[in-house]
Design a protein around this nucleic acid. Structure first.
Lengths: 149, 149
DNA sequence: CTAATAAAGGACTTTTTAGTCTTTTAATAT
DNA sequence: ATATTAAAAGACTAAAAAGTCCTTTATTAG
């Protein structure tokens, strides 16, 4: 459903949400290492997000990527809008062109409630809110360095 | 999550489940037209499924693809095993290598119940059972020819 | 002012997925 | 037997996604 690009971008932004600030920036290299994402590929994504104003960046020594308070009020869907061409949150998992309540595909009734919740999470929850959930619920953005695997 | 190939294959098999029999076979052309799938691409998929014994086929005049009673007892996951390289029903939607209850990704708690249900539908329900659901619940394998769009 | 740092930009390569085309083989009906 | 029908097989092309590399620009610390 989501491309690698989107998954990488979302994880990187949530990382920044929980760790960066105006005075604490992270280079793409650091992010790529922490999240186990190919660095040049991630750098491209960060560049796009920065250009679109979803995240912030500063060049030069001590520079890097970070989130401002403004950035934190944006939604995950803003990331998807930058990275993906079409709205992946509205595509049918069975590939039916116009799957919906009126013309459901064979798994529509199973998938629809989940998709509704996912859209809520990505469209209405702010990046800040989701990042806090990550912090408090003990969910992970990477499994790097975890020893209980 | 599912590739086009898998989506096409599932729809085609469900179509055959509800319309074909030992005496009523369908050529790839007919299926492709009915389901609005590129014919040569679908032909390849049907070929693979036939070789794997998930569906049946007969050459020559009056030939085509069809399901036997045996075929009908197989699962959707058998289709996926033929078409996809890895088990898409166990991949994390956020791309975490080992996402699970122990090490959940940020949307794991949202996605897990849905994935459990989806695995049930694809792993334990037979093709026959799902096809009957399609027939009875008025779900669709194609929207071709529907005028209420 | 200069050296070092790090993002921006853009061209490029590789891999995967999607889709096409042509030839061969098997079955059947006449 | 032969013409016809339709799947099997496999080589091929196209497009999209994923990933790399190199050069430029801006910033800052010395």
């Amino acid at each position: 459903m989501l491309s690698n690009a989107s998954k990488y971008a979302i994880r990187a932004v949530l990382f920044l949400a929980n760790k960066s600030s105006n005075t604490q920036k992270y280079g793409s290299k650091h992010l790529a290492d922490s999240l186990e994402i190919p660095n040049p590929f991630l750098a491209k994504l960060l560049q796009q997000l920065s250009r679109a104003g979803v995240i912030s960046s500063a060049k030069g020594p001590g520079g890097g990527f970070y989130l401002t308070d403004q950035n934190r009020q944006r939604h995950i869907s803003d990331i998807l809008n930058v990275i993906e061409k079409e709205n992946v949150l509205h595509t049918c998992l069975m590939g039916l062109p116009r799957c919906g309540d009126a013309n459901p595909c064979p798994i529509h009734h199973l998938a629809a409630p989940f998709m509704v919740e996912l859209r809520k999470k990505f469209n209405v929850q702010t990046i800040d809110e989701l990042a806090n959930e990550v912090k408090e619920n003990g969910t992970y953005l990477t499994l790097k360095g975890l020893d209980d695997l």
